[in-house]
């Protein structure tokens, strides 16, 4: 289980931060900053903005470490949620001006092979299998939103589909995922 190790180390460091252990935040930063910066960069596609998001996220981590409950989920997922929220807040504040035809997104922002990387842990392989049951455009819409922070309108423009259709598709896709993962 290669994925449990970083999660266990991160959980330990988060508890260390909550207890005021000197250096725990720095060690967590050293271990996780590359991963978290990558998540922010995929959403914001601007290094300065992604650095702002990571800055805000680390302050939130320091302030909220005491609220982390290991029984509610893995530490790495807790950290990812914080950087995603910080990044999405920034993207919204900037009016999500990132265009859906942004060349930085590439032709296929989340190539199908990328899903192979999900296979490492059991939870990930289940999610991959469930994503595979969705229609291709529906799956791409969910990934564009989650990984690249695109709004409904941006996804609609990129997939060349009506906005209302995209909204309904994504909602239906999420509920099918939930049923599949249950």
């Amino acid at each position: 289980m290669p994925d449990t190790q970083p999660a266990a180390d991160a959980a330990l460091l988060i508890r260390g931060i909550a207890l005021g252990e000197a250096g725990a935040l720095r060690r967590l930063y050293d271990a996780q900053a590359g991963r978290l910066f990558g998540i922010a960069l995929a959403i914001l596609r601007d290094r300065d903005a992604a650095a702002d998001a990571l800055h805000d996220a680390v302050l939130k981590i320091a302030a909220r470490a005491g609220q982390f409950e290991p029984t509610r989920g893995e530490a790495t997922a807790w950290l990812a949620a914080i950087i995603r929220n910080a990044s999405l807040d920034l993207a919204r504040a900037r009016g999500r001006e990132i265009l859906s035809d942004d060349p930085a997104l590439g032709d296929s922002p989340v190539p199908a092979e990328a899903l192979e990387r999900l296979a490492a842990a059991q939870q990930s392989s289940r999610l991959r299998d469930c994503l595979a049951t969705l229609e291709a455009r529906n799956r791409e819409g969910i990934l564009l939103a989650f990984v690249h922070g695109l709004s409904h309108a941006q996804i609609a423009a990129r997939l060349e589909m009506p906005l209302g259709t995209v909204k309904a598709w994504i909602r239906r896709g999420l509920m099918r995922l939930k049923g599949c993962l249950a």
């Binding site: 900053a33 590359g34 991963r35 978290l36 910066f37 990558g38 998540i39 960069l41 995929a42 959403i43 290094r47 992604a50 650095a51 990571l54 989920g73 893995e74 790495t76 997922a77 807790w78 990812a80 949620a81 995603r84 989340v110 990328a114 899903l115 990387r117 999900l118 842990a121 939870q123 990930s124 999610l127 991959r128 990934l143 989650f146 990984v147 995922l177 939930k178 993962l181």
Partner: peptide, 17 residues
Amino acid sequence: ERRLAPLADLAPPEPPP
């Protein structure tokens, strides 16, 4: 967050400034 968490790691890691 638990259900979708693995998707976050589709973003390739990148060293921060």
